[in-house]
Design a binder for these strands. Sequence first.
RNA 1: GGAGAGGUGGCCGAGUGGUUUAAGGCGCACGCCUGGAACGCGUGUAUAGUAGCAAUACUAUCGAGGGUUCGAAUCCCUCUCUCUCCGCCA
Length: 433
Amino acid sequence: MHDIQKIRDNPKKFAELQKRRGVKIDVEEIITLDSSKRTEMTKLQNLQNERNELSKQIGLQKGKDKSGKANELINKVHDLKDQISQLENQITVTNEHLEAILLGLPNLPYDDVPIGSDESFNIEIEAKRYGKINDKKTAEHFEIDTIEGMMDFETAARVSGSRFVYLRGQLALLERALGQFMLDTHTIKNGYTEIAPPLIVNNSSMLGTAQLPKFEDDQFQVIVRDNDLADQNNRKWLIPTAEVSLTNIVREKITDKADLPLRFVALTSCFRAEAGAAGRDTRGMIRQHQFQKVELVSITEPELSDEEHNRMLECAETILKMLELPYRVMLLSSGDMGFSAQKTYDLEVWMPGQQAYREISSISNCGDFQARRMKARYRDGNKNTKYLHTLNGSGVALGRALIAILENYQTPDGIQVPDVLKKYMNNLSTIKI
RNA sequence: GGAGAGGUGGCCGAGUGGUUUAAGGCGCACGCCUGGAACGCGUGUAUAGUAGCAAUACUAUCGAGGGUUCGAAUCCCUCUCUCUCCGCCA
């Protein structure tokens, strides 16, 4: 959600920054709605004041038992009531219109975000490139000979549908080991607090982190009773990322400055309808309706979020470095960023089967954009309340990490187990397919 | 799922239609007192918004949303969450 004050102060700049994100807006409409809303509010408040004053007098008159005078006043207030409810309705309409517009607008890009319409304008942070890539094409993970015994899409299709998978035996173990390893690293080395959060969240939480209202089609809704469908504000959703459960911890709270920064990490399943991705990455485990991910969330005061953003990037990098997977870091362009982000780094891991870098982690600073929607605030030293900054990043996606290992650690004997994972896999050194 | 009890400021807690502009207490801040502290005394202490250069004034908010009324923390309806008992359940 945007600070209406900022739009008011410099509407042209706001429109220009939205344009960088590929969003055309009618900023005049916003300004007009805002100013008529405020005019109406002033009027309403004056009428309410008048009503309150008269009602007080009625109470006094009745106490004195001058009933004639009281009735006269009651009639007077009666007229006010009509005007008040009419104005209230008018304001509701204006406000809903304005809210609908504002809730649908993405966060503004930071000054150093490259301007461009899509991923081709992303910029690599060359200093961050890590590892030697294998430029000989290997088998893609789903092409590995006889892997279907351990990675079973066929059964999943029959039991669940497309874009699901069964992992079996040592491959299931590998995924579990990855989760354990990542959680240990983030809690012990990186100072995050481990959370086991709910996977089902309410409507307000989804609005808070901005999956709603715009991306409803990408979500799985949970329906228990018929009236779950009827009451729009009472719906429940499967989380598309633990970002939702973790960030909403501070929703409608005033956090003590002394407790900041908050750093949470969680390993959860994530659920995505992938409505807009029909036909993309249809083979293999790259894009599933359900996948596991370790998610990092930091909550900071505004002055420290840039620093925290870089720190979070390094925390995610640590995982790939320890797994010895080659990767590069991209600074996303204004057109490629997620809705809530003001600045995003992507970690792309080298997939020798595709001979391409693929996204394995996305690390975003959302500034106060989500905090405004969530009413997540903190008290600064001078007893003023201010909006927090929220950041989130994958640290990292388990399924894609697993694929990266299958493709980068292929040998004729099987899949070598990365050293850091061995202790989580009963010292297994090779997965024989 | 059934029955019952509840949700009031940072916290505890009073309040069942009109000086409640939410009593009182705890906590916190400042001042007085003190050699210094405790005790005591005094003052202050919610959030959001509208108008205003500002001081300030006003409006809204007692779980959420509707309703009744000249007037609602208080009465009515719906939803939601918490607690107790029963049922079911990993």
